[in-house]
Design a protein around this nucleic acid. Sequence first.
DNA 1: CGAGTCTTTGAAGCCTTTCAACCGAGGTGG
DNA 2: CCACCTCGGTTGAAAGGCTTCAAAGACTCG
Lengths: 252, 252
Amino acid sequence: MPLRRRFSTEKGTDLHRCLVCDIRAQSVCSAIDDTELAILAQASKRLTLPPGTSVVEEGSPAVAFYNVTSGTVKLFKSLPDGRRQITGFADIGHFLGLTNAETYAFSAETVDTVQVCRFLRPQLETLLTDYPQFERRLLSEVTDELAEAQEQMLLLGRKTARERVASFLLNRMLPPASPNQTESEGCMVSLPMTRVDIADYLGLTIETVSRTISALRREQTITGTDNHGIRVLSVSRLTDLASGQTSGQNNR
Amino acid sequence: MPLRRRFSTEKGTDLHRCLVCDIRAQSVCSAIDDTELAILAQASKRLTLPPGTSVVEEGSPAVAFYNVTSGTVKLFKSLPDGRRQITGFADIGHFLGLTNAETYAFSAETVDTVQVCRFLRPQLETLLTDYPQFERRLLSEVTDELAEAQEQMLLLGRKTARERVASFLLNRMLPPASPNQTESEGCMVSLPMTRVDIADYLGLTIETVSRTISALRREQTITGTDNHGIRVLSVSRLTDLASGQTSGQNNR
DNA sequence: CGAGTCTTTGAAGCCTTTCAACCGAGGTGG
DNA sequence: CCACCTCGGTTGAAAGGCTTCAAAGACTCG
């Protein structure tokens, strides 16, 4: 509390924001020392965005870089006729908007209510130059991102609909809620997005996604009536499905 | 020549190698000052690899980082049953093998005769730490790589076979050989890889790739009898095709 | 409770794949 | 020297998985 008062009176902004940020450890911001967090807070601005808000737009000037602190943002590219490919979902701790180009090569839109920290381009540049650990951390994040993109290319180019959906559910599986959660209870899957988004992420149609999920439910691989609350019953079976290690049966 | 003698006697290795490297300007190495190139040369080793050589293998320890100085390397991921997705081609000036993980998440194999400079992991780490410009340049390269990956996801997830092949040919189009080359002569396309590789890159079968290229030839959009020597006759038509801006006619 | 949105399910169609045969170039060995 | 084999590529015909088109069910929110 004393901290809050001290910092917020200092310049009118809450410079302690980054200090109390509970997801800092998971993001690029963890690269900045505790003692210099005021600089980080000064370089960025926290925004709260309602669902369906456009964060960046393909082709518009790349003026800012964002760090997601809560909620989920979808990144996508579109063709002139409206076909869309979601290239990834950025959720807690992930960044978006990094580019060498003058303009963004992709669009980004919030899936649910999202909080982001926005860094304007010049301020990001300063951070990168002044804090090598920050730059290193960012390099590490982009490298991971690239590895994920390659995995997704394998999915889009070579996997069947069943394999795609199985891979997707596995990737979005949450860690067990309690440490003593039994295997039989199954793991929850985080699905804040609609079927349209899932389809555009997996390179399928909403009908195919729906049919495939229904099939998995019928086979008792997953359960959950609520569309956004699916539970995985057999992780091992889903893992096999995801990599194509399954006899061709039960495809309906 | 005096340089060669001085450096090569110094430690028995050709430390001037990087100084005379004619593609340095195009690669991450351009970030290192001329005066410190000996350090770069010491940190790396140049290798010449025949076609079909495995450079890195999915799952094996990630001990090295490579910079391609000539030729083309294909990067790919595979499924247990052998299905393969080529995630990219690394040619002159591009790097490969950067990862945060203990093991590589992809494989890489030479397409033709390839020259690479190999940096072992600890030496790369040292360079990154000692030369912030080097790290910055690498960040920039990975960022570009990620943007390309997103473009490829759009292709794999949402484009038709015709659109994929058209996009591929455009991407691999070489700049006009001579500045006064007329538009009508057409641009050459660099295709060192086989149909199998093209198919695995575009998420198609070799038959579909072959049929599509034949169709483009029949329509006079491209020419060239030699499989690895294709010439684009109408860049604008190909551009329209690549983004789906074309009436559905002439698909055969 | 009704309008709109999201999802599910069914049936038909189509683009790509699969299966198969053929072609041409390059290398080999009798 | 040329038959023979292999390999990469092309082409044809049939099959299949996903999409498209269509309609009904389920959920949300004022």
